[in-house]
Design a protein around this nucleic acid. Structure first.
Lengths: 335, 335
DNA sequence: ATCATTTATTGACGCGCGTTAAAAAAATAT
DNA sequence: ATATTTTTTTAACGCGCGTCAATAAATGAT
């Protein structure tokens, strides 16, 4: 920067000021800098900037498992919005591991971001570590809530997800049984089960919860194995299956196809399968998956605007808001 | 670091030396530092370190589109290997945009990584910009090759992919037609088409190339729309379809299901569909997708070991090696 | 106990930038 | 032309660390 400044005969602090806010220098000076910028390819070092600025233009985004297209997609939207708003996003994936999540937060502290959007691992998160991080860095939680941690939470209203699918299936003549993992990492899974039980109660229907074995993030395989077992044992309590999430459902559909069981809402089909999330691939399963869709757009938009609000407020908010978005039922062919 | 050093009564340069290489200090000193590290939670700032060290412990990973599970999966493997090797990976996605790819490379320069693993956008990459970057930062290209750019290329042997699928399909009694996008961004697509034509020639079979419209990275939708059109027009030249990649095939299968066309290798099925990549979801399509699998493990392992070699050699290699891994045919139910 | 060797300390500078206060220069107002 | 306001420059310090040379201290060998 010193070189560049000397080269065009403008002082370094003025150049620095320009990069902080181009409008803070006189238009004639701005023009000279911008002309020089075209000629020589100087670019300030963002990491050196972050080391010194009180308020940086970097936003950290942390997701629990980026190889899950759901998170990949929401991360993509968040990154795009950050860029549009003039910020530089920095994306991290915990890859399902607590130690990595912790290490990422430690690194983020060093990056000194203006704010962080954090989708925690959930059950396997190190609560104390995240709490300590949130005390130091303005953070909005999304997707998985951790009660009382972070300045706000933005996510989806699990109750509305399940109520729509359950009501749709029962209204159209079937009793949904609930298909899920026994020990889900994501807290949303528990909320969905509770919602299922609650809604079935309201509708005076007998609830059936199928809990399958499995650890980790290979949900499709877990769903497939679980489904194969249930289908093989002919242990399906009803002929309408409501999966906790789309990735399990993708595995379930695969198992059905393998066993020659027809899936769909038509009369001739043996079972119906519905689910939750509207995973990017839910449209392309065979049959296409009936599911309750996240409002990706609203969640990503609101998460970022909440973060900007938090940043403008100096990192503290009076109350910890929890903003939940309602699901939208997407009726496709599977149920 | 100064505070921490004062606190435990060891000089700052010694602490710095310890973090650079714990074995470079006397064992008694090491023990004292490590004991203090447990007590107080000091962690050096990685970005400040990178600013100053000649050779950092950071590795940049850039992929063209992270919401594509193929890249998400390979990125995950690369990150894990970096961590195991004692490096800190930093992951970026170009989101399919040249301007973003360029911006990422500019940022990476500032990060001063020891090396970079770059999967470029391909056709839409800014070759000059990437070349300039590779001159300054030790870089290994992977997935998409750009002739002469980067210290080495690690990828898959497209010819072996296509030869295995074509030979398998023709050996088992059908003539594969090739299904692809008209203007693919990824250079592998072109290589696959050429391989198809070459192999069909060798087998003295009439080649048929179906090129569908579509721009961007929504390959499933592009494949589905293309397939719907072809199937509707009954314009399929043969009853065995070889898709350029699995994501197109996923769309193709979806279209077949929608139109009630049975897919599989069994006699009773109307058409067979095979593809290339072994996408993480290829196992879960209905029917499961016969495909030529990337050797993910070998590619990620070799890409990183090539990078370490490059780093140890001081950033320059005598010759630019191109290492290609052979495909493995995965026979599933779709063909 | 003496000398050679290894390790640690001191003090200083550098990286690439932000930031600030005081002084100087330029633009605008009167 | 003078006074006032705005903008820029100068000079210096700070961030959190790496690195280096000279010096001091600890260790090991004899």
């Amino acid at each position: 920067m010193a070189e560049f400044a000397a080269l065009i005969g403008i002082s370094r602090p003025t150049i620095s000021k320009y990069f902080n806010d181009p409008d803070s220098v006189r238009s004639s000076t701005r023009d000279r800098i911008e002309a020089a910028l075209k000629q020589y390819d100087y670019r300030p070092n963002i990491y050196a900037i972050n080391q010194n600025r009180r308020l940086t233009k970097t936003i950290g985004i942390v997701v629990p498992y980026l190889a899950d297209p759901f998170f990949a997609e929401i991360a993509r939207m968040l990154e795009r919005r950050c860029i549009t708003a003039g910020y530089t996003p920095s994306l991290f994936s915990s890859h399902g591991e607590q130690s990595l999540e912790n290490a990422i937060l430690d690194n983020l502290r060093a990056l000194k971001p203006a704010g962080v959007l954090l989708a925690p691992l959930g059950r396997t998160s190190d609560r104390k570590h995240i709490e300590a991080f949130c005390r130091d860095v303005p953070t909005i939680l999304f997707d998985s809530n951790i009660e009382g941690v972070g300045a706000a939470f933005v996510g989806s209203d699990n109750f509305s997800f399940v109520s729509q699918t359950v009501e749709y299936i029962s209204r159209t003549g079937h009793t949904p049984c609930f298909f899920e993992m026994k020990n889900p990492a994501n807290p949303n899974a528990n909320k969905r089960r509770l919602a299922y039980l609650e809604i079935m109660g309201r509708l005076s229907l007998e609830p059936y919860v199928i809990q399958i074995e499995g650890e980790g993030w290979s949900f499709e395989e877990i769903g497939r194995q679980g489904a194969l077992k249930i289908l093989h044992d002919k242990a399906l309590p009803t002929n309408a299956v409501l999966c906790s999430n789309d990735r399990l459902a993708i595995g379930f559909l695969s198992a059905c196809h393998e066993m020659g069981i027809s899936v769909g809402r038509e009369e001739k089909c043996e079972i119906r399968v519905a689910s939750h999330d509207d995973h990017p691939y839910a449209r392309y399963t065979c049959p296409s998956l009936t599911t309750a869709a996240h409002d990706y757009e609203s969640v990503s938009e609101h998460a970022l605007s909440a973060l900007f609000q938090l940043i403008e407020a100096g990192g503290r908010l009076a109350t910890r808001e929890e903003k939940l978005f309602t699901a939208r039922l997407v009726m496709r062919d599977s149920a």
